[in-house]
């Protein structure tokens, strides 16, 4: 049994649910949706943990690709170094899931770990290297 944490990016026209059911039925995988987000433009992103036979996981990834769903492995954990951060906000608009947000009173940046889908998009968006991924 292998297990992987994956990020799935669903384009607008792909309906998310049936695909996920295919994954269970056709590839005999167990999965756990850790987080899911849908934008107002109906694009979706999901952080999944899947468990199953290694070759089945690979087949599943190929299937998803054919369906127009991009998959990539999730980074481990995002850390915000408060000492380095200048509260510029450059990371905020990159963060799809609002894990990085500006406090409207203090204008300081706040990081809500529970909302982070580990997509890693913010990582090279910080000009002072205050965002790091823990490996």
């Amino acid at each position: 049994m292998a297990s992987e944490k994956l990020i799935l990016d669903f384009p607008k026209n792909v309906v998310t649910k049936p695909i996920v059911y295919h994954v269970v039925k056709d590839f005999d995988l167990e999965f756990n949706i850790l987080r899911a987000e849908i934008t107002p433009n109906l694009e979706g992103r999901m952080l999944l943990e899947i468990r199953g036979k290694k070759d089945k996981i690979e087949e599943c990834k190929n299937f998803l690709k054919k369906e127009g769903v991009q998959t990539r492995e999730a980074t481990q954990e995002i850390i915000l170094d408060k000492e380095l951060c200048v509260n510029c906000g450059a990371c905020v608009s990159l963060c799809f899931s609002h894990a990085l947000a500006i406090n409207k009173d203090t204008y300081e940046i706040e990081f809500d770990k529970d909302k982070c889908v580990l997509c890693g998009i913010c990582l090279n968006g910080c000009p002072v290297n205050a965002l790091k991924s823990k490996i």
């Binding site: 433009n41 200048v86 510029c88 450059a90 905020v92 608009s93 500006i102 300081e108």
Partner: peptide, 25 residues
């Protein structure tokens, strides 16, 4: 812009500053 989203071509677009309002204050 500071509210965090604007509309461009009927789409909602998230906004972010690259200069620090906190530091300016």
């Amino acid at each position: 812009l500071r509210e965090g989203k604007i509309t461009i071509n009927k789409r909602e677009v998230p906004t972010g500053s690259i200069s620090s309002y906190q530091k300016a204050r």
